[in-house]
Write a protein that binds this DNA or RNA. Structure first.
Length: 259
DNA sequence: CTGGGGAGGGGGCCC
DNA sequence: CGGGCCCCCTCCCCA
């Protein structure tokens, strides 16, 4: 079944302007989410930042110990390609804790979590953060952890809301009326429904392709970038996806023919 | 083997 | 507190 039939047919609803995404910070911003014009990138508050920023979005694995090491290593941990936490620490202003970045040594002018150090713009945001985020730190104030436990699996959460959200992944309350497939969240169902309707609200500003899913558009935008996000430390090749980089390294191109 | 699209999942934040 | 949305990630499959 050819998947190359991706033609922009019709867009019934909103259509994010990804051309803005493209233009706002230069060609290399192609893969940068619109809300992260470089926000996830080092912002130059330390020397390491320049390893990434000026050149665009090349996640040089050589500076990402969590992602790549020259030693034989298993699959990089889910720290992911963007785990630049080791190389930058300035994300808090932009992502408001959205990312999983570790605490940044910021001035205490903001509301800072005493457990993990993340800072937030307001007390409410901090309060919310403390309910969910800090619970992942097993050592964080165990006495204050409510520990809502999932009865379907072993996961634990610090807030009932987080637990409820998780439980939906077991109960799958959102059912597709067309095919009966069930999903945990309404928006997942909506995304699925697009596979039935053919709706592709996310169009590429560089070509005629359109996508039903924003993440897939984001990945696609990488293909238009001269320099891709993920760079092999061994041969400097860049890849649009971490999986490709991983395949590349596993295949033994460079330094980690371990598996 | 590589590159890329399709689809889906989960955690987190904002309103 | 829940809905909506975001981002990141992964797996599968195909060219």
């Amino acid at each position: 079944m050819p998947r190359s039939f991706l033609v922009k047919k019709y867009f019934t609803s909103k259509k994010p302007n990804y051309s803005e995404l493209e233009s706002q910070s230069g060609p290399l911003s192609a893969g940068v989410p619109e809300r992260y014009p470089l926000a996830e990138l080092p912002t130059g508050e330390n020397g390491l930042s320049t390893a990434c920023c000026p050149a665009g979005l090349v996640w040089d694995v050589s500076i990402l110990p969590g992602l790549y090491t020259p030693e034989p290593v298993s699959i990089p941990s889910p720290t992911g390609p963007l785990d630049l936490s080791s190389s930058h620490s300035s994300s808090s202003e932009e992502d408001e804790g959205r990312s999983s970045d570790p605490p940044s040594p910021e001035p205490a002018e903001r509301h800072q979590c005493p457990n993990c150090g993340k800072s937030y713009g307001g007390p409410a945001a901090l309060s919310r953060h403390r309910l969910s985020c800090c619970g992942k730190d097993e050592a964080a104030a165990p006495a204050t952890r409510p520990a809502f436990r999932c009865k379907h699996c072993t996961k634990e959460y610090n807030s009932l809301g987080a637990l409820k959200m998780h439980i939906r992944s077991h109960t799958l309350p959102c059912v597709c009326a067309t095919c009966g497939k069930a999903f945990s969240r309404p928006w997942l169902l909506r995304g699925h429904i697009r596979t039935h309707t053919g709706e592709r609200p996310f169009s590429c500003p560089h070509c005629s392709r359109a996508f039903a899913d924003r993440s897939n558009l984001r990945a696609h935008l990488q293909t238009h970038s001269e320099v891709k996000k993920y760079q092999c430390a061994g041969c400097s090749r860049t890849f649009s996806r971490m999986s490709l980089l991983h395949k590349h390294t596993v295949a033994g191109c460079c330094s980690s023919p371990s598996s």
